[in-house]
Amino acid sequence: MAEAPPRRLGLGPPPGDAPRAELVALTAVQSEQGEAGGGGSPRRLGLLGSPLPPGAPLPGPGSGSGSACGQRSSAAHKRYRRLQNWVYNVLERPRGWAFVYHVFIFLLVFSCLVLSVLSTIQEHQELANECLLILEFVMIVVFGLEYIVRVWSAGCCCRYRGWQGRFRFARKPFCVIDFIVFVASVAVIAAGTQGNIFATSALRSMRFLQILRMVRMDRRGGTWKLLGSVVYAHSKELITAWYIGFLVLIFASFLVYLAEKDANSDFSSYADSLWWGTITLTTIGYGDKTPHTWLGRVLAAGFALLGISFFALPAGILGSGFALKVQEQHRQKHFEKRRMPAANLIQAAWRLYSTDMSRAYLTATWYYYDSILPSFRELALLFEHVQRARNGGLRPLEVRRAPVPDGAPSRYPPVATCHRPGSTSFCPGESSRMGIKDRIRMGSSQRRTGPSKQHLAPPTMPTSPSSEQVGEATSPTKVQKSWSFNDRTRFRASLRLKPRTSAEDAPSEEVA
């Protein structure tokens, strides 16, 4: 009796068929016929556990003709996506030579605008209408194809895939403007070719909807975003200037109206006075309405000098805001240009540092100066060695804690006790272990408590650290204090090793 083939788990290929790579489910599931010992083939499952149809090819690079078809379809799909992405970037994010197409579109729109203006002049109306009709045909074809291509290429973005995504893309403001202008152009052409009475009025009214094509030149909205950011950044200043200017306008108009309503027919109503105030304070000055009385002229002159300053403030605020924003954008561009080279330089330096163990090129690091100058660790070890030599091999803490019996001779020589300023008595072995921070803190506390006492003391002649007598400086308080830590004499004296002298005989010792 033939044995059933062993159940295979995992992703390994079956024996005897090495080139074939078959994806098997996580659990080997066989058909009921196979479990019962029949000759049925096992049921194939996909990666998600769903059964595959009987005629479906197995996924994998070596699955025969199905694999070749899959490779061809995958390559075609990649080319399709690449083309779609390229078209989308050309239309929505132009760079380099892609601006040539947008310059061509701008020339078409500008020519249409010029011809629309010439069509309103009686001398050039006939020729402009003929040229404009031909140009409209060209623009309908160009913009119609462009609109379709834009909607198709938007599928390269995830949020615009599918018919719902394309509809979302078509609802964008600039796409809506394109659609309105396209419909208006078709209506103008249809009305112009019919030759009816309505054609002339339709051409004159709907052609100027094509002015909206100038708005579509900035599809990404960079200028509007820049203007919005400047207004938002200086909103408080703008609101303040406009508010005060509006108050000056209504008060000036009302007072001039009261002064001129009886003697001047131009100011017969408050609305006429508001019109005069707006034209005057905005420095336009049509001259259609002028005050005639001396009181009205004085009020107009005073409020004009006051109001023009507030009406001119928004222009200066926006101008300075634009300058600052442009400078910030230039700085951001320079930062973006330098970020990648800086990151590459840091990575290269780290690779060199991690692979080169000698690091002989590091001549400006802490390790280099640590090898030249005595390190703080060596100074600490030197302090501890000196203290243990004086205390008979014991550390200062051990000397303080060691009990001394009554009447027993002390094995240590008597030492002079010292007192730290602002604290109780402490171990004499710690007097010379006072660090730089303690010395600086002690000097600052003395300056806070009594700076007036220092200038009363007789001035001391500054001497070099080499000429100081070591026996005289029994305490860190003898170090000359200065008002600034930048004094080199104080810094050098604080680094010197001060020996400890006994109370009975204080021989001067120098520590090399």
Rank of each mutant, 00 (worst) to 15 (best):
residue 300 A to P: 05
residue 94 P to H: 04
residue 297 R to S: 09
residue 274 L to V: 09
residue 262 D to A: 04
residue 270 Y to H: 03
residue 271 A to D: 01
residue 218 D to V: 10
residue 321 G to A: 13
residue 150 R to P: 05
residue 207 R to G: 12
residue 199 A to P: 02
residue 304 A to T: 06
residue 84 Q to L: 13
residue 322 F to S: 00
residue 236 K to N: 06
residue 215 V to E: 01
residue 253 S to A: 04
residue 285 G to S: 11
residue 325 K to R: 15
residue 310 F to Y: 12
residue 271 A to P: 00
residue 196 N to I: 00
residue 341 P to S: 10
residue 166 R to G: 12
residue 80 Y to N: 11
residue 272 D to H: 09
residue 260 E to G: 10
residue 220 R to P: 00
residue 210 Q to R: 00
residue 293 T to A: 10
residue 220 R to L: 07
residue 266 D to A: 05
residue 275 W to L: 07
residue 279 I to M: 13
residue 318 L to P: 14
residue 328 E to V: 14
residue 103 V to L: 01
residue 341 P to Q: 15
residue 315 A to V: 08
residue 279 I to T: 13
residue 170 A to D: 00
residue 260 E to V: 14
residue 342 A to T: 14
residue 258 L to P: 06
residue 254 F to I: 07
residue 154 A to P: 15
residue 336 E to V: 06
residue 191 A to T: 00
residue 279 I to L: 04
residue 84 Q to K: 03
residue 344 N to H: 05
residue 233 A to P: 11
residue 285 G to A: 11
residue 303 F to Y: 01
residue 334 H to Q: 10
residue 249 L to F: 03
residue 86 W to R: 02
residue 146 E to K: 11
residue 286 Y to F: 10
residue 160 Y to D: 13
residue 289 K to Q: 05
residue 296 G to R: 09
residue 152 W to S: 09
residue 268 S to F: 04
residue 237 E to V: 11
residue 318 L to I: 11
residue 187 A to D: 14
residue 13 P to R: 13
residue 189 I to L: 09
residue 263 A to P: 11
residue 207 R to S: 10
residue 247 L to P: 01
residue 165 G to S: 01
residue 140 I to N: 15
residue 323 A to V: 15
residue 266 D to H: 05
residue 331 R to Q: 07
residue 322 F to I: 00
residue 284 I to M: 10
residue 297 R to T: 05
residue 103 V to D: 09
residue 94 P to S: 14
residue 96 G to V: 13
residue 148 I to L: 02
residue 9 L to R: 05
residue 312 A to D: 07
residue 279 I to S: 08
residue 260 E to D: 05
residue 328 E to A: 03
residue 310 F to C: 05
residue 165 G to R: 10
residue 183 V to E: 06
residue 173 P to H: 05
residue 300 A to D: 09
residue 296 G to V: 10
residue 230 V to G: 05
residue 335 F to C: 14
residue 317 I to L: 13
residue 305 L to S: 15
residue 275 W to C: 03
residue 323 A to D: 15
residue 298 V to G: 15
residue 211 I to F: 03
residue 315 A to D: 06
residue 91 L to Q: 02
residue 132 L to P: 00
residue 288 D to E: 14
residue 162 G to R: 12
residue 277 G to W: 12
residue 190 A to P: 05
residue 202 A to E: 15
residue 309 S to Y: 05
residue 316 G to A: 09
residue 278 T to P: 00
residue 186 V to G: 06
residue 199 A to D: 13
residue 329 Q to P: 15
residue 342 A to G: 08
residue 282 T to I: 03
residue 50 S to C: 13
residue 308 I to M: 06
residue 318 L to R: 11
residue 237 E to A: 09
residue 218 D to H: 00
residue 320 S to C: 10
residue 222 G to D: 06
residue 276 W to C: 02
residue 278 T to S: 10
residue 146 E to Q: 00
residue 216 R to P: 11
residue 314 P to R: 08
residue 94 P to T: 00
residue 331 R to G: 03
residue 165 G to D: 04
residue 321 G to D: 14
residue 179 F to Y: 01
residue 83 L to Q: 15
residue 309 S to F: 03
residue 150 R to W: 12
residue 64 G to R: 04
residue 207 R to L: 14
residue 222 G to V: 13
residue 110 F to L: 01
residue 161 R to P: 04
residue 200 T to M: 05
residue 265 S to F: 08
residue 273 S to L: 11
residue 232 Y to D: 02
residue 296 G to S: 14
residue 345 L to H: 14
residue 259 A to G: 06
residue 322 F to V: 00
residue 336 E to K: 08
residue 148 I to N: 06
residue 284 I to F: 08
residue 277 G to E: 13
residue 327 Q to L: 02
residue 226 L to R: 03
residue 237 E to K: 13
residue 254 F to V: 01
residue 165 G to A: 04
residue 314 P to T: 01
residue 185 S to P: 00
residue 338 R to L: 12
residue 292 H to P: 09
residue 326 V to A: 13
residue 34 G to V: 10
residue 288 D to G: 04
residue 281 L to V: 03
residue 190 A to D: 00
residue 279 I to V: 06
residue 287 G to C: 02
residue 153 S to F: 14
residue 288 D to V: 12
residue 338 R to Q: 12
residue 260 E to Q: 00
residue 168 R to P: 07
residue 321 G to V: 12
residue 47 L to F: 12
residue 248 V to E: 07
residue 332 Q to L: 06
residue 237 E to Q: 07
residue 142 V to D: 10
residue 176 V to F: 08
residue 313 L to R: 14
residue 201 S to C: 01
residue 262 D to Y: 11
residue 293 T to I: 15
residue 165 G to C: 05
residue 206 M to R: 12
residue 238 L to Q: 00
residue 269 S to P: 05
residue 282 T to P: 06
residue 303 F to L: 07
residue 254 F to C: 05
residue 308 I to L: 03
residue 280 T to A: 02
residue 262 D to V: 12
residue 267 F to Y: 06
residue 276 W to S: 09
residue 229 S to T: 07
residue 287 G to R: 05
residue 286 Y to D: 14
residue 291 P to R: 01
residue 49 G to S: 15
residue 224 W to S: 06
residue 107 L to S: 03
residue 101 Y to S: 01
residue 152 W to R: 09
residue 312 A to T: 15
residue 330 H to P: 11
residue 334 H to P: 12
residue 221 G to D: 02
residue 270 Y to N: 12
residue 316 G to D: 14
residue 339 R to W: 10
residue 290 T to A: 07
residue 170 A to P: 05
residue 234 H to P: 01
residue 291 P to L: 05
residue 84 Q to H: 01
residue 72 R to S: 11
residue 82 R to L: 10
residue 41 S to F: 15
residue 280 T to I: 11
residue 235 S to I: 03
residue 230 V to L: 07
residue 162 G to V: 02
residue 88 Y to D: 14
residue 198 F to C: 02
residue 155 G to R: 02
residue 288 D to N: 12
residue 257 Y to S: 02
residue 165 G to V: 06
residue 249 L to R: 10
residue 267 F to L: 07
residue 285 G to V: 11
residue 209 L to R: 01
residue 20 R to S: 01
residue 192 G to C: 04
residue 316 G to C: 11
residue 231 V to D: 13
residue 276 W to L: 03
residue 286 Y to C: 06
residue 246 F to Y: 06
residue 248 V to G: 03
residue 240 T to I: 00
residue 336 E to A: 02
residue 246 F to I: 05
residue 185 S to W: 01
residue 198 F to S: 03
residue 293 T to K: 14
residue 283 T to S: 12
residue 287 G to S: 05
residue 1 M to I: 15
residue 95 R to L: 10
residue 337 K to N: 02
residue 325 K to Q: 15
residue 280 T to R: 03
residue 312 A to V: 11
residue 218 D to A: 02
residue 299 L to Q: 14
residue 204 R to L: 08
residue 236 K to M: 00
residue 230 V to M: 00
residue 297 R to G: 00
residue 189 I to V: 09
residue 261 K to E: 15
residue 339 R to G: 09
residue 217 M to R: 00
residue 290 T to P: 11
residue 296 G to A: 15
residue 320 S to A: 12
residue 314 P to S: 06
residue 92 E to K: 13
residue 150 R to Q: 07
residue 268 S to C: 04
residue 160 Y to H: 08
residue 151 V to G: 14
residue 90 V to L: 09
residue 226 L to P: 11
residue 307 G to R: 03
residue 100 V to F: 01
residue 146 E to G: 04
residue 230 V to E: 01
residue 246 F to S: 11
residue 155 G to V: 05
residue 285 G to R: 02
residue 251 F to V: 09
residue 309 S to T: 14
residue 109 V to A: 08
residue 257 Y to D: 06
residue 313 L to Q: 05
residue 338 R to P: 07
residue 328 E to G: 11
residue 129 N to S: 06
residue 290 T to K: 02
residue 218 D to N: 00
residue 244 I to V: 03
residue 317 I to M: 11
residue 160 Y to N: 06
residue 264 N to D: 09
residue 269 S to F: 10
residue 1 M to R: 15
residue 151 V to A: 10
residue 321 G to R: 15
residue 169 F to C: 15
residue 261 K to Q: 13
residue 272 D to Y: 14
residue 244 I to N: 09
residue 318 L to Q: 10
residue 299 L to P: 06
residue 288 D to A: 13
residue 151 V to D: 13
residue 267 F to V: 07
residue 256 V to A: 09
residue 343 A to D: 15
residue 278 T to R: 13
residue 221 G to R: 03
residue 291 P to T: 02
residue 339 R to S: 02
residue 275 W to S: 11
residue 100 V to D: 09
residue 117 V to E: 10
residue 289 K to N: 05
residue 264 N to Y: 13
residue 283 T to I: 14
residue 270 Y to S: 03
residue 334 H to D: 04
residue 277 G to R: 02
residue 243 Y to D: 00
residue 334 H to L: 03
residue 266 D to E: 02
residue 325 K to N: 01
residue 334 H to N: 05
residue 293 T to S: 04
residue 281 L to W: 05
residue 238 L to V: 01
residue 224 W to R: 00
residue 153 S to P: 02
residue 317 I to N: 09
residue 301 A to D: 08
residue 319 G to R: 15
